[in-house]
């Protein structure tokens, strides 16, 4: 095995572990904002690392892998931000565990809370 193959293999393993952890976070977290936190961060680094690993294994693919990496690093935060905003404006507010419920939600000065409604989808 050459040194490139070793680096590529390690990156692929790290990437798949983080992809798995992101999905585990999606499954375990209690509300949608925390799910977005786990989902965005872990899957972004996981996909970046795995694609970079494939780029190391096949050096002639490196440039296109870099395009894919840049695109993922650019688009994932935007889509999670759009989803968080849409969910808040739709009337699903963040879960707050501490006692200070009034001060912990600063966004309600922009979008005042209505009575939370049950959704059937």
């Amino acid at each position: 095995m050459s040194i490139m193959e070793i680096i590529g293999g390690i990156l692929i393993i790290i990437g798949s572990i983080f992809l798995f952890l992101g999905a585990l976070g999606i499954y375990r977290m209690p509300d949608i904002y925390n799910r977005l936190q786990a989902g965005t961060k872990a899957t972004t680094l996981g996909a970046m690392s795995l694609i970079l690993g494939v780029g190391f294994l096949e050096p002639s693919w490196m440039l296109k892998s870099l395009v894919l990496i840049i695109f993922i690093a650019y688009s994932n935060p935007i889509s999670s931000h759009a989803l968080a905003r849409a969910t808040y404006r739709r009337g699903h507010y963040p879960l707050i565990l501490s006692d200070d419920k009034e001060n912990m939600d600063a966004y309600q000065e922009v979008v005042p809370h209505e009575k939370e409604k049950e959704e059937k989808v």
């Binding site: 983080f18 952890l21 992101g22 585990l24 976070g25 375990r28 977290m29 209690p30 509300d31 904002y33 925390n34 936190q37 786990a38 961060k41 872990a42 963040p94 879960l95 707050i96 565990l97 501490s98 912990m104 939600d105 600063a106 966004y107």
Partner: peptide
């Protein structure tokens, strides 16, 4: 994130700041 997801008790204290 990995630490929070793996630990069984989910150590989170979420909120919104500005």
């Amino acid at each position: 994130v990995a630490r929070r997801v793996i630990s069984p008790s989910l150590p989170i204290n979420p909120g919104v700041v500005k």
